[in-house]
Simulated scan of single mutants.
Amino acid sequence: MTWQLADEDATLNVARICSDIIDGGGLVFLLGTLGAGKTTFCRGFIQALGHEGAVRSPTYTLVEEYPLSARRVCHFDLYRLGDPEELEFMGIRDYLDDDSLCLIEWPQRGVGVLPEADLVLHLADEGDGRQLDIEAGSDKGQHWLQQLQQHPELSKLMMG
């Protein structure tokens, strides 16, 4: 499914809606060029779950953990990952348990080590705004995607 996001506020609003729908643990990949809005989406998602501090891209640390009251969210940025095997050394399997939701920017850098995502979000520049394409990679992801498609606020942004 494809949604048109007019500006940063629209990206944050979609992230908020997604935070209500994407429940429990899982794996969400965020794809897009530099500046496409991946970190903005993650910030909106994590803050909608109750985190009150800053949400920065973990470009140098690779991962930031947010132990929130409802669940643990792990925000990864693999842009500077030199080799997918580095994920094994940092203990990636410990983050991928059933209770954690992992938001992973630049997942293509972890190919061969990362499992398939439940949801894949593709963010792309589209004029002054962004285009967001979401596809499911699992039954859980398909359930989330169906809920997103039926959400009244998001249906206004749907392109097809």
Rank of each mutant, 00 (worst) to 15 (best):
T2Y: 04
W3Y: 14
Q4I: 12
L5Y: 03
L5S: 03
A6R: 13
A6P: 03
D7P: 04
D7N: 13
D7Y: 11
E8S: 12
E8P: 10
D9L: 14
A10Q: 06
L12I: 09
A15P: 07
S19P: 13
D20G: 15
I21T: 10
I21Y: 15
I22D: 13
I22R: 10
I22V: 15
D23L: 14
G24L: 12
G24R: 10
G25T: 09
G25P: 14
G25A: 11
G26R: 09
V28P: 10
V28E: 06
L30E: 00
L31V: 09
L31W: 02
L31D: 08
G32Y: 01
G35I: 06
G35W: 11
G37V: 12
T40S: 15
F41N: 02
F41K: 08
F41L: 12
F41T: 05
C42S: 11
R43F: 02
R43L: 03
R43P: 07
Q47R: 13
A48D: 07
A48F: 01
L49E: 08
G50H: 07
E52T: 12
G53M: 04
R56V: 13
S57A: 05
P58C: 04
T59P: 02
T61Y: 07
L62P: 02
L62R: 03
L62F: 09
Y66L: 00
P67C: 03
P67H: 00
A70W: 01
A70V: 04
R71Q: 12
R72L: 04
R72I: 08
R72D: 04
C74I: 02
H75A: 05
L81A: 14
D83P: 08
D83Y: 10
E85W: 15
E86S: 08
E88F: 15
F89E: 11
F89I: 07
F89W: 15
M90V: 14
G91P: 14
I92A: 11
I92P: 07
R93V: 14
R93D: 15
R93S: 14
D94T: 08
D94L: 07
Y95P: 13
D97C: 15
L101H: 11
C102E: 03
I104R: 06
E105N: 13
W106P: 12
W106T: 12
W106L: 10
Q108E: 15
R109H: 13
G110T: 12
V111W: 08
V111D: 14
G112M: 07
G112R: 04
V113D: 01
V113S: 08
L114W: 09
E116W: 10
E116G: 11
A117D: 01
L121M: 13
L121H: 10
L121G: 04
L121K: 06
L123H: 00
L123R: 00
E126R: 08
E126A: 12
G127D: 01
D128G: 03
D128L: 14
D128I: 10
G129K: 02
L132H: 03
D133Q: 13
D133P: 02
D133M: 09
I134V: 15
A136H: 03
G137D: 10
G137T: 06
S138A: 05
S138E: 08
K140F: 03
G141W: 00
Q142Y: 02
W144F: 11
L145Q: 05
Q146P: 03
Q150N: 11
H151C: 03
H151M: 06
P152R: 07
E153Q: 14
S155G: 00
L157N: 01
